[in-house]
Simulated assay, not measured.
Amino acid sequence: MSQSQSQDSALPAEVEERLTFDAQGLVAAIVQQHDTGEVLMLGWMDAEALHRTLTSGRVTFWSRSRQEYWRKGDTSGHRQYVRSVAMDCDGDALLVRVDQIGAACHTGTRTCFDGRDLQAVVGHEED
């Protein structure tokens, strides 16, 4: 368990038991615009960040670089308001659907994926 993950998190035990945290005590959180399906960004949460997200209506992440919690938009004004949170079948990823106000990416783009396409061969069903 990482230093970031609270030993006595207020996250309900039945939720925490279903999650599969990595070696640093984190789980990936994919953030998606609730009404368009647009994938906005990927962040990391520990049990406490998820608890804050589930109970505050705003998305909170654990910053791996700064080693602290950060609530999206507190300094930039580009807030994320929670609409729903789901975990995947393995419990090792979260899907956080939000109403994004402003840019989701710290570079100022709408999503962290804008203009960052990689060359890829397009697959076809008969391949």
Rank of each mutant, 00 (worst) to 15 (best):
Q3W: 06
Q5K: 11
S9N: 10
P12S: 15
A13Q: 15
E17S: 15
L19E: 10
L26D: 04
A29S: 12
I30E: 05
Q33F: 02
Q33A: 14
H34E: 10
T36M: 06
T36E: 09
G37Q: 10
E38C: 05
M41P: 05
M41H: 09
E48F: 00
H51A: 01
R52P: 02
T55V: 13
S56Q: 15
G57T: 14
G57I: 14
T60W: 00
F61W: 05
W62R: 04
R66S: 02
E68P: 02
E68R: 11
Y69P: 05
W70N: 07
W70L: 09
K72S: 02
S76K: 07
S76R: 03
G77S: 11
H78Q: 13
H78C: 13
Q80Y: 06
Q80V: 11
V82E: 08
V82D: 08
S84H: 13
C89M: 07
D92P: 12
A93P: 10
A93E: 06
A93N: 09
L94V: 05
V96S: 07
V96A: 06
G102F: 08
C105S: 04
H106T: 05
H106R: 04
H106G: 05
D114L: 07
G115M: 06
Q119G: 06
A120C: 11
V121L: 11
G123R: 11
H124K: 10
